[in-house]
């Protein structure tokens, strides 16, 4: 058995689930299915969550390896009152999503970028999304949404 600190709540994960990847535990044991499995090999980024504030590809992380660390998933990104993170609001305002499958991973990757760099220029955005995939081709709008969210954040909207 291991304990995972997910979105501020300590959760118990029994065997055999404790031996699975973080992504599998989140999705299949805890029912937090926002992070998706697009490849299971670290190639697509649909599974990105934050571990100790850094974006990680949950499909490559053994759950056991992050026991006790602060894990943030897309389900925990909005405030407890349901107030959207500026990135989520920007994503809706720009109409980014098409099929939607890759989007949670992208939002989490972008959230980590904005936490580290409140005013990313296009090349910083490109670098942050560099190894992320979206087959629907929403990259043009993701760029716009990230810039919009950065502006909102600097104007004082709290994440």
């Amino acid at each position: 058995m291991i304990r995972l600190l997910v979105n501020g709540v300590m959760r118990e994960v029994p065997e055999p689930w404790a031996g699975e990847s973080l992504l599998t535990v989140l999705r299949e044991w805890l029912g937090l299915v926002g992070a998706k499995e697009g490849c299971g090999a670290g190639d697509c980024g649909a599974c990105v969550v934050h571990v100790a504030g850094r974006p990680r590809r949950a499909c490559l992380v053994p759950a056991r390896a992050v026991a006790g660390e602060a894990i943030l998933t897309i389900e925990g990104l909005a405030g407890p009152d349901g107030a959207l993170h500026p990135l989520q609001a920007a994503w809706i305002a720009e109409g980014v999503a098409q099929c939607g499958f890759c989007q949670a991973g992208h939002v989490m990757q972008a959230a980590a970028l904005l936490a580290a760099n409140p005013d990313p220029d296009p090349s910083a955005i490109t670098a942050a999304l560099g190894r992320m995939l979206c087959r629907c081709g929403t990259q043009p709008r993701m760029h716009r949404a990230i810039r919009r969210a950065a502006t909102a954040l600097r104007a004082g909207e709290v994440p």
């Binding site: 999705r27 299949e28 029912g31 937090l32 299915v33 926002g34 992070a35 998706k36 499995e37 998933t73 897309i74 389900e75 990104l77 909005a78 959207l84 990135l87 989520q88 994503w91 809706i92 109409g95 999503a97 939607g100 499958f101 989007q103 949670a104 939002v107």
Partner: peptide, 28 residues
């Protein structure tokens, strides 16, 4: 230019695709 009805669900991790479903007693 209406937004997708599922736009909010998608960015909050609530839009359900097939692999997101679970049933009691389910195996893989």
């Amino acid at each position: 230019p209406a937004p997708l009805p599922e736009a909010r669900a998608i960015v909050t991790g609530m839009a359900l695709f097939t692999a997101d479903l679970r049933l009691p007693g389910m195996a893989y």
